[in-house]
Design a protein around this nucleic acid. Sequence first.
DNA 1: CTGAAAGCGCTTACAG
DNA 2: CTGAAAGCGCTTACAG
Lengths: 366, 366
Amino acid sequence: MKSPHTNFDKPKKASSSPRRKPEPEPAGRPRIHDVAALAGVSVGTISAVLNGNGRVSNTTRSHVQAVISELGYHPDFFASNLARRHTQVLGVVVSNLQNPFFAETAQAIEDEAARYGYQISLMATNFSPEHHRAAVKQLLGARISGIAIMTSEYDAVARQLILASGVPSVSLDVGKLAKHSSIIRVDSRGGMRTVVEHLIELGHRDLLFVRNSYKKDGQRLFSHKLRDEGFAAAVRACRVGRLKTNMVDISGPGADAGERAIASVFGKIHFSAVIAVTDMVAMGVYRGLQARGIRIPEDISVVGFDNTYFSRFLNPPLTTIDIPRCDLSKMTVEALLRPGAKSKKSLKLATRLVVRESTAPPHPKA
Amino acid sequence: MKSPHTNFDKPKKASSSPRRKPEPEPAGRPRIHDVAALAGVSVGTISAVLNGNGRVSNTTRSHVQAVISELGYHPDFFASNLARRHTQVLGVVVSNLQNPFFAETAQAIEDEAARYGYQISLMATNFSPEHHRAAVKQLLGARISGIAIMTSEYDAVARQLILASGVPSVSLDVGKLAKHSSIIRVDSRGGMRTVVEHLIELGHRDLLFVRNSYKKDGQRLFSHKLRDEGFAAAVRACRVGRLKTNMVDISGPGADAGERAIASVFGKIHFSAVIAVTDMVAMGVYRGLQARGIRIPEDISVVGFDNTYFSRFLNPPLTTIDIPRCDLSKMTVEALLRPGAKSKKSLKLATRLVVRESTAPPHPKA
DNA sequence: CTGAAAGCGCTTACAG
DNA sequence: CTGAAAGCGCTTACAG
């Protein structure tokens, strides 16, 4: 399994050249040398037309191009990048592809990067700091020209590695400013504030905040921490008579956590609205509530955070906080491509309340 | 924007070596040469400990390791792969990360590949054949040791490129068997059959099949075609009195399409159950139905296809066809890593009906 | 406008 | 057990 190309049964064909050739060449993939020979020009010229250098005449160029497509030649990425000393790729690491927020963010960054002719190399950590570190090492070894850390978890060693490498980086919410390193700060606090205000305005006074701060291994998620603090601050700021708040914090995958959160407090704690730390958690909350015959929003209001794609398809459509993917991806790519520009100020990413149908005034007799 | 590293303002420090050094070296990233010098051994020895070759003594090894971590050295991926002539990475191309089916599949393949020490390089095509082709070219240029095409769309040119390259490949549902090329055939037909039987058993006789075969550009999705055919075949096979079926085919993103499908037929066509070609479409169907005050499953039953993560969190939880990710990822990486093994037979992937709460007997007075 | 050659940073037979 | 050197397949000054 280690060497998928080995093929002992097949008698080796006599190698065409007397040089060292440990294996019969894999599949006759043409090299730049081959196209140069066939085209009757030098290797340097092939490279020039490949890379759009103006130095080659039109007739040569078109001839070379014909040969290239005749041979089905495409340059070796590794050799090319090695020689070029840098790549046109941006590394992006996210926590988990299954969570739509990360998938959507990755997609948005990819789209934006493509506008500048950059590709992205995407890695998922599954919330594990070890994977996180491994991903960063790998990306750094892959000589990416910038790295975006869009994870919920944090690893200080990985951060050190990045800083030490001098590769431009941007991270979400966490870390201190440093050379070549930008931080995009999502305005979680502002988001939470608008949520709480919205609920209070509707007449709610008994709020349940459902958190999902810890993963199974007991590791704390950084981005959630900020949302937690944002909620606390929002509550403190809203000086309203008899406002009561409760919290539950369940670990594990978001949707499951939301469902179990409801199971754990239902009937024990009184609340007329629940604020879920993410849309995924909100989805689980829906399930927990609805399985018990509770109607949303007539009996209980629910609000999420992230404005993931599916949130408007929930029943009822979820009121949630939007983190504008478009701004996020633009900021990210810009910070990576022009690390000098405004890295000195950290970048604020505003959030926005999207009111849909999961919030309403509390039930009269509640 | 093209050369993010250029820095004209800063006076160049005198280059330490008189050789060609176009730029001051980026960030003093250590090379294998540096660690060899510091450790007092040869470059070959460093490489040996890096790659776990047994040829180096324990004392040397641990000394070298100490130096490596002291320097924070990590090998250059490109140089390493170039020298090694192959990589330990599998290319996987999917249509769209936003669709949970693809995200989940990618994640599953990544996990499985990791068990063999392989990484994956993930590309999304956004359903565009051009992007599809570009992704394949790029992956081939990246010398991946296998390529998995897990897309809904198909591109014949890309397929040719892959076959010509001799790189082991696996694709989903589409294409003919060829050397080093496996096909995993999802049993869509069987899945559709169990769905139709399930519905008939429940008493349904008026089915609506909601398709999403075309993208905005009019391009037909291959995997959907098979499901369409599977449905037709299932209906034909079920010789039941007065079974009526209707179809709608709406293009665009799945969930939107589902919603619009209902909008377009509601009140015009009579049906007691809807079969959505994917879970995403089903999600939109839910929305379309529920926005009109229709209850699921009391008034109308709904079934999906894919068993994506969110389907059990829908309200009500969605009855759907499961495509076992675990088997799929296992087959995929096995086919890629041991292309000789069973590539001659195409691989069948069984599907399975997951009955949840979105299906029930039809409304009595319907 | 084009070619010859050095160099990118590793790995891997080949000698010792 | 270890080192010296060739080679991976490109790009890019440097000459012409």
